[in-house]
């Protein structure tokens, strides 16, 4: 496994180059009249220098640090990936499904993904949480959460 600072500094270097290009494209102006790209361009230049320094330092680091970083990345990734995908899907389906249905599905999944309990318990706890949240945010605070499917069925 590569040293984590090598990976992260490479990411910053690429981002810094993008910032330099974007800043330049937005126009730098002059020192007496700086334009919109001025700060972005110089931020890119400074970031390039700093991430270059992190990259060089990572290349020089000894094995001890590498060993520690191996341990740090040894933990389980599965939960993190599943939950992130679930959250992205939730955002995608929020408008079409509506808050009540979409949130119930998300909560049901979240309660199952980490130390799962029995199905009936998961179902009623998810439903209860959705209803309480809906009452607080939509009914009490007037947040106008998306109606989605339920809105169509009522028409």
């Amino acid at each position: 496994m590569k040293h984590p600072d090598l990976i992260s500094s490479l990411f910053w270097i690429v981002l810094a180059l993008c910032l330099i290009i974007w800043g330049y494209a937005l126009e730098l102006g002059t020192l007496s009249e700086p334009e919109s790209g001025f700060i972005i361009f110089w931020a890119g230049i400074i970031m390039l220098g700093l991430s270059g320094a992190v990259f060089i330092m990572a290349l020089r680091e000894k094995d001890k640090r590498l060993e520690r970083s191996r341990q740090r990345f040894g933990a389980s990734w599965r939960n993190v990936i599943w939950v992130t995908i679930a959250l992205a899907l939730y955002a995608y389906l929020l408008s079409p499904l509506g808050f009540l249905v979409d949130t119930f599905l998300l909560l049901f999944f979240l309660f199952r993904v980490y130390e799962p309990r029995k199905w009936p318990t998961t179902i009623w706890v998810s439903a209860l949480m959705v209803i309480v949240t809906y009452l607080v945010f939509d009914v009490w605070l007037g947040s106008q959460l998306p109606k989605g499917l339920l809105d169509l069925s009522w028409r």
């Binding site: 939950v83 959250l87 949130t103 998300l106 909560l107 979240l110 980490y114 949240t133 947040s143 959460l145």
Partner: peptide, 14 residues
């Protein structure tokens, strides 16, 4: 953790 995530989602949307 589901409560925290739910509050984050609803909070941002609100």
């Amino acid at each position: 953790f589901p409560i925290i995530l739910l509050l984050c989602l609803v909070g941002v949307y609100s």
